[in-house]
Design a protein around this nucleic acid. Structure first.
Lengths: 224, 224
DNA sequence: CAGAAGTATGACGGTTTCATGACAAGAGTT
DNA sequence: AACTCTTGTCATGAAACCGTCATACTTCTG
């Protein structure tokens, strides 16, 4: 879950930011001062930091520089001052974005997403889905069992991905035929055969499947 | 020199933006429409693009989406409308920042620098890419295997770079044809042939490739 | 408990997908 | 102009894969 740290001294504003961002699905922590914020970030790094510019003690600029020195985390400034001079100074200090209060939560959230996206496209090229000891890397066309690569055929791979995209959900043979084979109609036994082959490769004991489970009369599902 | 592309239909505004940014030390080109901008970016990619939202013909959002589809270049929107709804829509479409006209040139410049910096810190290790004993130096146009230079043809080199830019990711023959050959359509076997030739040069045993791996039914990938 | 329905699995032939060597056309050099 | 290097096309053979079927096994139902 995306983690955000909010550094803001005004209790009311901080609380409202925290609540609003939680509503948007972020895991949020708050800090009431620059020092507190820096410590929090050191101990449990958030992947985005929101900073107010006017903080008691060490001012916001110093806080940004310090964060930047320790970490490469994206920093968004939220400030009441909408003065070009401040904006430039904050960005030069290392901030990635600057918003003027009052901020629209929707905009803030969209800007956080934009920042996160930019980071991700360059940083994390491969997404992973994990089911216990079973890892699935869709873009890499790779599957690993206890870290060891497993050689799957195209159909097996697609079947596994389809199931993995709906963890714990039962998919009927019909659904699988349509999504994996793009058949409108077809022999449902075909699915059985491929499930069987897949089990030989990813299950220790294909008689007692741990991941790829049969739900009699309904279909198959993939579980953790 | 950092290159910026300004897509803006109003001649006066475009010109003033171009001049102002040139003053700040950027190499700037202008485009008066979305279409012109897309073509310009295709032919000679700038490393940041500025887009006006209100363009004649294809609107700005569509332009952003198209840019994003073709390229990973940072996009900054400059618009007269300061409406949360527009801002969110632009960011969702793929923009990285959004500024409301009239823009302070100093702020614009600072934001461009911030964006560029974020790009670079994450993109930096591109200058030399390593896959085990295989080193790729894109700028130098050089490839080394265990320190020894390997002579590659232009096509082989481009193919290798394209794969190397997405380490571990499977690229389909279609994708490779488009990116390396700039063919929209073409015989996919062509890719096989060049992969084969590349393997002869960079693999010890081209029958059991260590780096340039075939993912049957999907494409090829380069792995560590 | 017997039959039915549903599921697992091994075997086999046809098809698809790949790797590779041969070759001719084009580009660039000497 | 002869030469070399590169590139795209084609043909061939080998390997991998897929779908079908028959059979065996399990679970449910009356």
């Amino acid at each position: 879950m995306p983690g955000v740290l909010v550094i803001e001294d005004d209790d009311r504003i901080r609380l409202s930011l925290v609540l609003a961002l939680e509503d948007e699905g972020y895991a949020v922590r708050g800090a009431a001062s620059a020092e507190e914020g820096l410590v929090a970030q050191r101990e449990e790094p958030a992947d985005t930091v929101l900073v107010d510019l006017m903080l008691p003690g060490a001012d916001g600029f110093e806080c940004i520089r310090q964060l930047r020195r320790e970490d490469d985390v994206p920093i968004v400034v939220v400030s009441a001052r909408d003065d070009t001079h401040d904006i430039v100074a904050a960005l030069e200090a290392g901030a990635d974005d600057y918003l003027v209060k009052p901020v629209a939560v929707k905009e803030l959230s969209a800007r956080l997403r934009a920042l996160r996206r930019r980071g991700r496209t360059l940083l994390a090229p491969v997404s992973t889905m994990a089911f216990g000891d079973l890892e699935i890397l869709p873009e890499a066309g790779e599957v690993r069992l206890r870290g060891e690569p497993v050689a799957l055929t195209r159909t097996e791979f697609r079947l596994l991905c389809e199931l993995a995209e709906h963890p714990g959900l039962v998919l009927s043979r019909q659904q699988l035929l349509q999504r994996v084979w793009e058949y409108e109609i077809g022999d449902e036994r075909l699915v059985d055969v491929h499930v069987g082959r897949l089990r030989q490769k990813i299950e220790d004991d294909s008689r007692a499947p741990r991941y790829l489970v049969t739900v009699r009369g309904m279909g198959y599902k993939l579980q953790k």
